[in-house]
Write a protein that binds this DNA or RNA. Structure first.
Length: 715
DNA sequence: ATAGGGTTAG
């Protein structure tokens, strides 16, 4: 891999800014591929970009490499591991073009496609009336032909265009377009195809669009930037990214340069297919061609980085806008706020929102939805409530999704009364904000996590009465709550009704049922819940039976555990293991509990459980259930005893992290842990400086272990 | 939706 590290993938001559250049910031961030991504902040803050010489042809010659050929080296150059001398090259004192002898090739036309001017049509009223009739009539060929014959009109080019533009649904537009074609009164120009394609795009009819495009090619009708951007955006909306790229390349091959609309459409295609490196290359290449990207481009970039919660990427977008002097609009702020949330930066989302309001923009429903969601997830109750207050004081726009997001925020933070008030507002509101399945799910979540079984059950019954669908999450919340209240018969009923009403149990629901199994006090109750679980996940029930049997050997448990966990959704794996451990402990199967904790660790379900530095060893049980945390503590004590016995080096401080349970409804892991520590007479005490931590000094721990060793030996 | 590109809910 001795290739010049800064050779550019797109054959664009690379401008290396001087090291003291103010507009250039360089930072790296490791990607999952263990490579290094480079963000070069283009050096366009102070000096205007040199315009490409006017005598250069705008379009590439037909034998130009296709875009995919041009992009090929990209994956091999930019995804290769970082080389130390890259930074060397960057700090070269003089600005220089890597290859100044070759002319810079532009990738996009800086001129937008020009539209033909609108001219007034005196017959507009009659034509609109006909269009309305067509819109309202049946989709069938017969009905449409009949309507056209009923209201005869002069089928001139202008009249036909006006009608075509006024048709709403694609079957009508497509029919009318074909009708004009068969009339043979005037040549079919590009604009007729473009208008029809736009309508087809609303109906996601990519196949028909492609058919029309091919027809244009074979009839020698020019495809312009409007045609291509429509084709590309339709393919994108149909998730046919390869088709979108194929047409983009065809465009270059026919010698047509994309303008900024087509260019940002293709950027979005690459962004949505997760090709971040390609997007950045195209972006930088466009900027190097003298393009000043607009707000739409930045919202595409912002959305892309938000998708992976890439904070460096978000900073890059903000920095680029600043240095290019592009003022973000509401959409850009919305995507960036959302992205900040995904990147886990609630504070920065808040400042960004403040900046937005200060700049004179009015937040819309999407802005507020994004921010409320961020505050809810971060459990920033104060900010969430303040924002809500501000929304009402300023009468900022509310919609249905925002209402439901507010309810979810209430569930995240534990604001029961506020949620009830909102829910009532929704019930009293006009039709478009009536509580739906999402709203009820949020309420089930709120009542369920708060242990308010009766109100939760009431919600469930109300849903049945009003015909609101129950979804798997609502069902899970209610079952969890009924389980905690030991209302097993109600639980069985709710499970049965939900399944009957179309709920497909998923791994989370199974995890929830499994946790109820661990809570059951009688074998009768266990049987009832296991019967539900048997319906949803028989293999999991098999594993439970296996581990409960003392005679089952470790190897058998290991194989079965592995097989069940492999088939389980990633986010449900640890809960499964936690519950299995709890079940064992409740049946006094301590050895089995330790085996399961070992297996959970083996298969990576408890990353970061043990942490060691020179000064401090810690056990982080925050993601463990009570039974699993006890098991982990016992395991840790056993290990420490061995270390003490062998007189190996020990740190000053020992730490067990239980967390404080920031969630209002969260169970008291700390309390339970404290009593277990007491039972073991271990010298851990709740730390006053570090919330959610139990600490022990080396001296205390060593003397405690030594006092226990004789008993440990005899036991 | 009056020929083309971007943003909201477990």
């Amino acid at each position: 891999m001795a290739a010049a590290p800064l050779s550019t993938p797109l054959d664009v001559h690379f401008f290396i800014p001087p090291s003291d250049s103010k507009g250039t910031i360089f930072f790296t961030k490791p990607l999952r591929t263990n490579s290094t991504r480079k963000f070069t902040f283009s050096c366009h803050s102070s000096k205007p970009k040199p315009k490409p010489p006017p005598n250069l042809p705008e379009s590439p010659s037909p034998n130009n490499p296709s875009l995919s050929d041009q992009l090929k080296p990209l994956s091999t150059t930019t995804l290769s591991p970082a080389k130390p001398d890259q930074t060397h090259l960057l700090s070269k004192p003089k600005s220089t073009w890597v290859n100044p002898t070759r002319p810079k090739r532009s990738v996009l036309s800086l001129q937008r496609h020009k539209r033909s001017p609108y001219s007034y049509n005196p017959q507009v009223r009659e034509l609109k009336l006909l269009a309305r009739k067509l819109n309202n009539c049946d989709d069938s060929q017969e009905a449409l032909s009949l309507t056209l014959n009923e209201v005869p009109f002069e089928p001139t080019r202008e009249n036909a265009l006006l009608i075509l533009n006024s048709l709403k649904f694609w079957p009508k537009s497509y029919f009318f377009f074909n009708w004009i074609k068969t009339q043979n009164l005037f040549p079919m120009e590009t604009i007729f195809y473009n208008v029809t394609m736009k309508s087809l795009r609303f109906g996601r009819q990519f196949q028909l669009i492609e058919q029309l495009a091919n027809e244009m090619v074979s009839n020698g009708i020019e495809l312009d930037n409007i045609t291509y951007s429509t084709i590309i955006s339709c393919a994108k909306r149909c998730n046919m990214f390869n088709k979108a790229i194929e047409w983009f390349e065809r465009m270059y091959k026919t010698g047509l340069m994309p303008d900024e609309v087509t260019y940002s459409a293709i950027l979005d295609v690459y962004a949505k297919s997760g090709k971040v490196e390609e997007v950045l290359s195209l972006y930088e290449r466009g900027v190097a061609s003298g393009w000043k990207p607009d707000a739409i481009t930045f919202s595409v970039l912002g959305k892309m980085f938000g998708e992976t919660g890439d904070y460096d990427g978000i900073r890059y977008v903000l920095q680029e806008m600043r240095s290019l002097g592009v003022q973000p609009n509401v959409v850009v702020y919305n995507t960036l706020l959302e992205a900040m949330g995904k990147a886990g930066k609630p504070g920065l989302a808040r400042s960004l929102f403040d900046e937005m309001v200060e700049s004179g923009l009015t937040p819309d429903e999407k802005t507020l939805t994004a921010l409320i969601k961020v505050y809810g997830k971060a459990r920033w109750a104060k900010d969430a409530l303040e924002l809500w207050e501000r929304m009402r004081a300023n009468s900022w726009p509310m919609d249905f999704i925002l209402y439901n997001t507010l309810l979810n925020m209430c569930a995240d933070i534990g604001l029961v009364e506020e949620a009830e008030r909102l829910f009532e507002d929704m019930k009293q509101s006009s039709d478009h904000c009536k509580p739906d399945s999402y709203s009820y799910t949020a309420m089930l979540n709120i009542y369920g996590s708060g242990g308010n079984v009766d109100k939760a059950m009431y919600m469930f019954e109300e849903m049945s009465e009003l015909g609101v669908a129950v979804n798997v999450m609502g069902c899970t919340c209610l079952i969890q709550c009924l389980g905690k209240a030991r209302r097993i018969d109600d639980l069985v009923t709710v499970f049965g009704v939900s399944v009957k009403r179309g709920v497909k149990p998923d791994d989370r629901l199974c995890g929830c049922l499994l946790s109820v199994v661990s809570l059951c006090e009688t074998s009768e109750d266990v049987g009832k819940v296991v019967a539900c679980l048997q319906e949803a996940n028989p293999k999991l029930v098999g594993l439970v039976k296996l581990i409960e049997n003392k005679k089952t050997g470790f190897e058998t448990v290991k194989q079965e555990f592995k097989s069940v966990i492999r088939d389980t959704a990633v986010d449900a794996r640890r809960p499964f293991c936690n519950c299995l451990i709890d079940i064992c402990r409740n049946r006094y199967l301590y050895e089995r509990a330790h085996e399961l904790l070992y297996l959970g660790n083996l298969y990576g379900l408890y990353p970061g459980l043990h942490n060691k530095t020179v000064d401090e060893w810690s056990l982080d049980v925050r993601s463990l259930s009570i039974g699993a945390a006890h098991t982990a503590l016992e395991e840790w004590m056993g290990t420490l005893a061995k270390v003490v016995e062998r007189e190996e080096a020990l740190p000053e401080l020992f730490l067990a992290q239980t967390g404080t349970g920031t969630h209002k409804f969260s169970q008291g892991l700390a309390t339970s842990f404290a009593s277990h520590v007491k039972k073991l007479a271990a010298p851990f005490a709740q730390s006053e400086e570090r919330a959610g931590c139990f600490v022990a000094t080396r001296e205390d721990l060593v003397s405690w272990v030594q006092s226990r060793i004789p008993s440990a030996v005899t036991a």
